[in-house]
Design a protein around this nucleic acid. Structure first.
Length: 463
RNA sequence: GGCGGAGUGGCCGAGUGGUUAGGCAGGGGCCUGCAAAGCCCCCGACGCGGGUUCGAUUCCUGCCUCCGCCUCCA
């Protein structure tokens, strides 16, 4: 089975057939960089990172473009309120997003275009729309004429007559449902010159301009959160199709992470920032939490569920450490067939992880029965499968050796090994009181000791 | 008002017209000086009422509850 992916436009799963065979082009609506990212924002990044990795793994040459909206009402308002230049405000938060994506193991995009760098392309797109009779200028604003495009509403399933109202601010519209392509300059606000007057981009226009600039008039996948279906993606599609571009072939949308049943928003005060979370759990554990449910299912955030994700991830991790400790290095091997099948079915990560856990159990059993070949095979498979999900505990990104300073670790290792030798001597002499005292000392220092057939193994607790 | 999503065992979370999701927790066992880890077994579920069917959690229908979008939003 080839990859099948959900398409909001058709309300169903369809086989992925790229515009150009052997390549995959993805445009993801990235952040409006007006505040620090929370876990909801990063879920989108992580979900599409998994899609991108899966397409790459299957041999596609993937182009992954994730934009940055670096000019909009909120950025201007917040920067003004903070007494800072708008461009500094945007840049500061863009860095915060980049850092959050990176810390969760999202591969960097092929390119991350900024809205302010693509005014030329936006002007050209407006020119085409006006020439074709799909847009009009009024007092320096430029609007898309919704009634000129009969297919408007097809993506989101909206019926024209039932759309309650459009953007509130605009005044020069022919129809209240028309949306703004370009906003005329207001005193004190940044602006760029156009044939219709100075102004700044309307939100929807920039994505069409940037997507087609880098991915072509027709490309494969356009993603984002479910809230973007209407009006943002509806409008993007309308303006691009009206201009004569085929635009995106597939429109998947990821669901929310909610808090106590409500979407996260700063006004509700229920935002969990990424740095705050990473003080409590390790990055791959948080990533596991976001990858384990299906991307189209709402995640109801809870401490207990997060703790379960931590346990589940550690089960996988400790299996790989077990095998590596006993049998030496483990290289990524072949995927289980069920894993491929699950991933091909609209990125069925829950089933895919079930496959991983089955392999872990079988691998542990093989280890217990000293079937080294089977254990190694299972471990290789687990590395490959978790690698596709960006969760491979032995990858350079997540293995402890790459994140912990080597010299301190060496020093610690020397001291711990001496204590463990002392404990082993005590055990050999059946002086268990002394042995347990040594173990208790290590435990209280945050070092867990496990006895294995190959001798004691120590790990730092709570990574 | 329009459009869309969801209600699964103690918890998280998939899925299917009849036969094992997976994880976490709980009970029993093996292993271990003890512990931890691991393995084996067990426990148990499909919001409510109708209908279709040999059989429905899975299809149809009515109802209840919750959530999202329609202004900016991952």
């Amino acid at each position: 089975m080839a990859l099948h992916i959900y398409d909001t436009a058709t309300r169903g799963v369809r086989e992925f057939q790229p515009v150009r065979s052997g390549t995959a082009s993805i445009y993801l609506c990235g952040a409006t960089v007006q505040a620090v990212p929370h876990i909801g924002h990063v879920r989108s990044g992580v979900n599409y990172d998994v899609l991108r990795r899966w397409l790459s793994f299957q041999g596609n040459d993937v182009l992954f473009v994730r934009n940055v909206t670096d000019i909009d009402d909120k950025i201007l308002a917040k920067a003004t309120a903070a007494g800072r230049p708008w461009w500094e405000w945007a840049e500061t938060h863009e860095r915060a997003f980049d850092s959050a994506y990176d810390s969760l193991g999202c591969l960097p995009p092929s390119y991350s275009p900024r809205a302010t760098g693509h005014v030329t392309q936006m002007v050209e797109l407006m020119r085409r729309l006006i020439d074709a009779g799909h847009a009009y200028a009024r007092n320096g604003d430029v609007y898309f004429d919704v009634r000129s495009f009969p297919d408007y509403g097809a993506l989101s399933g909206q019926r024209m007559d039932d759309v309650q109202q459009g953007e509130t601010a605009a005044t020069g519209k022919r129809d209240h449902r028309d949306f703004t392509l370009w906003k005329s300059a207001k005193p004190g606000e940044p602006s760029w010159p156009t044939p219709w007057g100075a102004g700044r981009p309307g939100w929807h226009l920039e994505c069409s301009a940037m997507a087609t600039t880098y991915l072509g008039g027709e490309f494969d996948i356009h993603g984002g959160g479910i809230d973007l279906i209407f009006p943002h993606h509806e409008n993007e599609r309308a303006q691009s199709n009206a201009a004569g571009d085929g635009f995106a072939r597939y429109w998947p949308h990821n669901a929310w992470i909610t808090m106590a049943g409500e979407k996260m928003s700063k006004s509700l005060g229920n935002v969990v920032s990424i740095p705050a979370m990473l003080e409590r759990v390790r990055a791959p554990e948080l990533r596991y939490y976001m990858v384990a449910p299906h991307y189209r299912s709402t995640i109801e955030y809870s401490e207990a569920a997060l703790a379960e994700a931590v346990s589940a991830y550690r089960r996988i991790e400790s299996f790989l450490h077990r095998v590596a400790g006993r049998l030496g290095s483990v290289e990524p091997g072949a995927l289980c067939a069920e894993f491929t099948e699950a991933m091909d079915d609209d990125l069925g990560t829950p089933k895919a992880l079930a496959t991983v856990h089955n392999a872990v159990r079988e691998g542990n059993a093989a280890l217990d029965s000293s079937d080294d070949a089977a254990a190694l095979g299972a471990a290789a498979s687990v590395r490959a499968m978790t690698g596709v999900l960006g969760l491979d505990p032995l990858s350079d990104k997540w293995s402890d050796s790459s994140t912990v300073d080597n010299a301190p670790r060496q020093a610690l290792s020397t001291l711990v090994d001496e204590l463990l030798e002392e404990r082993q001597r005590a055990r050999a002499e059946r002086d268990f009181a002394l042995a347990d005292t040594v173990r208790d000392r290590l435990t209280s220092a945050g070092i867990a000791v496990e006895d294995t057939p190959d001798g004691p193994l120590w790990t730092l607790k709570d990574g």
